[in-house]
Design a protein around this nucleic acid. Structure first.
Length: 287
DNA sequence: AAGAGGCCCTGATAGC
DNA sequence: TGCTATCAGGGCCTCT
């Protein structure tokens, strides 16, 4: 499901729903995620009040009282659903705990609040939860990761220096969370199309202008995607079941065989698969 | 040390 | 209908 924009959409809606509320009960249905949900997880979370929900990169950060935190990573297929007793979902005429579109299979954890239930569902189990017990550890947690695209640290000096002598292709770097945090397979292709750069060009071959282009387009495209509610390919929805709209604006992702959308470009969009991941690009205008 | 590739897992879809 | 193969938004690990 989720790259930075989608995780941000989930964060916004989750924050609205659960800030200042206490978790009354935690129900674990299946501990098997990328990392097993620890046995003391329920006790750690239970009765804690939520201050806010923030985000770094593709990680949701639940802030509890007393500087306790829970990280949630959605992996490829993690989704968060909410059932609100006061605002029953459309079509929900059954009980509080059942809704027609709400998945039952692959629910891993359910967090029960007063009048609310938050559900974590993850068929492929690439997501995970992580407990953090103080504010220093939270700061430390992300130090080995690169800056978010929005950060001032993601600037021309940083990128030009980072790319010196780097023999790997530029797309791999956009996916490399140690270089920049939050970009995934969809937005990497879109950013490079906007920058007119071939995804397989070696990073060390990018000139200053191209580096700048990658920086500016990363910031712009991710912000734009957030404003559009994220990309709903497959079944991404926010926690209340609303779809995003950015998928309508894909220029290259999933556009194999289409004509390039750039004015005056006669190129065709091509798909290339490397190490099991697809890359989309225009054969003509991305040099 | 950097870079390439495999692997974790289930589900949807395409092709026969 | 039902088999098999392929692909999917991530990131960790190992090998060279």
């Amino acid at each position: 499901m989720p790259e930075l924009p989608e995780v941000e959409i989930v964060r916004q809606s989750l924050h609205k729903k659960i800030k200042k509320k206490s978790i009354q009960q935690v129900i674990i249905r299946n501990r098997n995620l990328r990392f097993k949900i620890p046995v003391d997880f329920e006790n750690f979370i239970k009765n804690k009040k939520i201050i806010k929900v923030s985000r770094f990169s593709k990680y949701l950060i639940i802030h509890f009282q007393n500087e306790d935190y829970c990280l949630i990573h959605l992996g490829m297929s993690g989704t968060i659903h909410i059932l609100d007793k006061k605002k029953p979902l459309k079509f929900t005429n059954t009980s509080f705990y059942h809704s027609p579109y709400l998945p039952e299979k692959h629910n891993h954890a359910e967090f029960v609040f007063d009048n609310l239930k938050v559900i974590y569902n993850d068929p492929r189990r690439f997501g995970f939860f992580e407990i953090i017990r103080n504010h220093q550890d939270l700061d430390k947690r992300f130090t080995s990761m690169g800056p978010e695209p929005f950060s001032n640290k993601f600037n021309l000096n940083y990128v030009v220096n980072y790319f010196k002598n780097k023999n790997k292709d530029i797309k791999s770097f956009l996916l490399d969370q140690k270089f920049v945090s939050g970009i995934g397979n969809i937005y990497a292709s879109e950013i490079l199309f906007a920058s007119k750069i071939n995804p397989f060009k070696k990073a060390k071959r990018l000139n200053k202008n191209e580096c700048l282009s990658v920086i500016l387009n990363s910031k712009r495209i991710l912000k734009h995607a957030i404003n559009k509610g994220g990309s709903s390919i497959r079944d991404f929805k926010d926690i209340s079941g609303n779809k995003g709209n950015f998928q309508k604006e894909f220029k290259v992702y999933q556009q194999e065989g289409a004509h390039c959308k750039r004015t005056n470009c006669k190129g065709i969009i091509k798909k290339k698969i490397t190490s099991n991941r697809s890359t989309f690009f225009c054969v003509s205008c991305q040099k």
